[in-house]
Structure formats: structure tokens, C-alpha cells
Amino acid sequence: MDFLTHLINGISLGSIYAIIALGYTMVYGIAKMLNFAHGDVIMIGSYVVFITVSTMGFPTILGIVIAMAICTVLGMTIEKVAYSPLRNATPLAVLITAIGVSYLLQNIALLVFGANPKSFKSVVPFEPLVLADGQLVITGVSIVAIITGVIIMVALTLFVNKTKAGCAMKAVSEDRGAAQLMGINVNGTISMTFAIGSALAAIAGVLLCSAYPTLTPYTGSMPGIKAFTAAVFGGIGSIPGAMIGGLLLGIIEILGKAYISSQLADAIVFAVLIIVLLVKPTGILGKPINEKV
């Protein structure tokens, strides 16, 4: 029964990682860059919910919608101001810029919200689900995280595979030049990708802070790095890969904490990543890289 509890907690954490990883992987697939500021967008989204819901007393749903809207605008602004001028720059320049944006967001949050941790009140009002005579307890946040994760994954998969805009995203991801020749606005598509990824980051932030209720300006960075790991683990650029990578990472982390060592849990997570990459350098669902000549 213990194992089942841990497994469910792992799936729940994994769903949150998967939601964040989707943002990394989509942006990588379309814009061919690693947006290291993605984790900090999560943090901003969490602060927005904290302020609107806990401080100003807005209804939870309204607070989440506001957070999603603010993160969407933030993500698109970051892309427009920091990344789009570097469209033809070397990948290293873009990477360093992304790290710079990450620090910028953390320091702005430090300036505005202060360094003191805020105690985030869970947005999930449900009582824990108690099963099997109290041997199996599933928290409300876990259930909401898993359901949200499933909804987002299904919706995103349908969007990418069934809609014209999704098809255009795949086209841009594969060949930017040819996509332009079809009349697809590449800048618009990249902007849309950042918007979707950032809105998802806001949702992930709320779920994360509801499960682990301490909010600081650095809250986003560790989950951000882990979700990035999950995206690489599953095969960066691949949407199903990010989902699988996120879920596996969450499960490994929780089971590692429970059965091996809570101090070593993060080390185990990254060790698994290293092993996977040694065996399959492109990740679980990654496609072999074909260099064009």
C-alpha cells in the first residue's frame, strides 16, 4: 500500500513536471532554443496567484486565469524583447541571454516581493481521499494535478495533430524556410508557442505551490531544471516525450526519496538522466538527428 501511495504521489509530481516540460520542449522544437527562463515564469505565475487569491481575496479560478494571462504576456514579451533580435545569432548567445532573463526575473521578484518565503495556501479545497481503511491517502492536490496533467496532454496533442495551427507549428519546427514559403508567419508561430508554454507554466506553478507551499523568488528554478531534464529525458522537441519524461522523472524522484534516500533523490534523478543519455543520446522518444548537407 505504501508503494501505491508513493506511486500516486510520483505520478502527481510527474504530471506537474510534464506540464512544465511541455513548455521547454515546444519552445525548443519551434524556436530551436532552450528557454532557461521558463522556470522563473512558473514562479511569477505563483506570485500572481498568491497576491490575487491570498492577499486580495479573489476567487481561486479568477486568480489562476489572471496568472495565466500575465504569464502569457510575459512569455511573449520575453521572446519579443530578448530572443527574437537573436533569431540569427549563435545558439550560445541565445542560451546566455536565456540565463540572463532567468536571473532578471528572479531579481525583479526579489525586489518586488522580498526574500522572505511566502506561505502559499493550497488552491485545492478538497479533503484528501482516504481509501483502504486509511492505508492509502491521496491528497486533493495530487488528484487535481493528475487530472489537470491528463487534460493538458490530451488537449495539446489534439491541438498539434488536428488543427491547422498545430500543423503549421510542426512545419515550422521541421523547416522554417519551407514553412515561410507556405505563407506561415514564423515569428507569429514562435510567439504563439511561447504564449502556450507560459500559460502552462502558470498552471504548473499553482499546482506546484499547492503541493509544496513555500514561495520564494527561487521557487521556479529547481522544478524548471528538473522539467528541462524531463524534456531531454523524453527526447527534447517531442511532445509525447516531454509527457513521458515528466511522469517518469516524478515517479523516480518520489520512489527514490521513499526507498533510497531523501537526500539523494535529486542525485538519483540526474543519474538516471545521464544513464539514459549514455544509452540513447536523443532521449526516449527523440528522433535521430539528421544533419543536412
Binding site: K170, A171, D175, G177, G183
Partner: peptide, 22 residues
């Protein structure tokens, strides 16, 4: 480039460049 196609000009690029994942 993305505005030119709707004006009535299409381009079959060198090396075909079809979207292999579609």
C-alpha cells in the same frame, strides 16, 4: 516571405523540402 505566397507566387524549393513528419 510568408506574405508573398498569398500574392500568387509559389516556390518549389531545391531539395524538395517536404515536411517529412507530416
Amino acid at each position: 516571405a510568408h506574405k508573398i505566397v498569398s500574392m500568387g507566387m509559389a516556390h518549389v524549393p531545391e531539395g524538395r523540402r517536404v515536411f517529412s513528419q507530416l
